[in-house]
């Protein structure tokens, strides 16, 4: 029942949105090349599906995204566990992290291109940077926030390193780390497009630049919608996975 209700609200919200869009399209006299109608965009989308360009570019993007995001998650969780454990060390690392964190990953683009060239790498590196800091910081804070009682119990039962790390620290900190991993997905996805707008010859970001160059506003908007949908799907999948694991874990 709840699911049906939410589907109902989703459908209504989209119908209203598309209707408004159509209304603005009819009442204004923008050039069709600048302001496409819902139907134009739909046709463009169908065309992209037919010639396979939407799949091709999505695959290219997903490959880069997976590479950048997953490597960032693995490295930042690993480093986060270490830095969270060795609080003294983190005191020295933290100021640098705080300085680097607010910098948009895009600011590094000139260096990235100079160092790594063009191709897949810039997008991968941008996604990596976008995901790295949030996951690192949430891992450090998760480890730092572990209730002392777990360590007392482990010590009492004679559990030693590295078991403390695997049997105590990681599982206790896991819910918060998972939350960080989940939140980082969103910001990393945002930067995918930006990363692919420079020097890529494929991918959804490239499709944006390409349709701009060809003055295809309909393709442009269709691509934007595809990016939104995939982002939403990724988020949903990860949210479900997070819930599932937490349940398995007995935390919720």
């Amino acid at each position: 029942m709840k699911a049906i209700l939410s589907i109902k609200t989703i459908i209504i919200s989209f119908i209203v949105f598309i209707a408004l869009w159509q209304l603005i399209f009819i009442t204004s006299n923008f050039n069709e090349a600048l302001f496409p109608s819902p139907l134009n965009v739909w046709n463009a989308l169908v065309e992209m599906v037919r010639d396979g360009s939407v799949f091709e570019n999505t695959v290219a993007s997903m490959y880069r995204f997976a590479l950048g995001y997953i490597s960032a998650v693995i490295l930042s969780v690993f480093l986060g566990l270490i830095l969270g454990w060795f609080k003294g060390l983190f005191k020295y690392v933290n100021p640098i992290v705080q300085l680097l964190r607010p910098i948009s990953p895009m600011a590094w683009m000139p260096f990235i291109v100079l160092w790594f060239g063009i191709g897949d790498t810039p997008a991968v590196v941008i996604i990596f940077i976008a995901a790295f800091f949030p996951v690192l910081l949430s891992t450090v804070s998760a480890v730092g926030g572990i209730d002392d009682i777990y360590f007392k119990v482990s010590k009492n039962f004679g559990i030693k390193q590295p078991h403390i790390l695997w049997k105590v620290v990681l599982p206790t900190a896991f819910p918060q780390i998972a939350n960080g991993i989940h939140l980082a997905l969103g910001s990393a996805w945002i930067f995918l497009v930006a990363g692919e707008m420079v020097g890529s010859q494929s991918g959804l970001g490239y499709l944006i630049i390409d349709s701009r160059n060809n003055l295809r506003a309909d393709v442009l908007l269709a691509t934007i919608i595809v990016i939104g949908i995939i982002g939403l799907l990724l988020d949903t999948v990860l949210k479900k996975a997070e819930k599932f694991i937490l349940k398995l874990w007995g935390v919720v």
Partner: peptide, 21 residues
């Protein structure tokens, strides 16, 4: 000098590991 596994402490807030059955 340190806790020994021969002597076990039970705490007021249980100290169970939530992810374990």
């Amino acid at each position: 000098k340190e806790p020994s596994r021969k002597n076990v402490t039970i705490f007021q807030n249980y100290g169970l590991f939530p992810w374990r059955t």
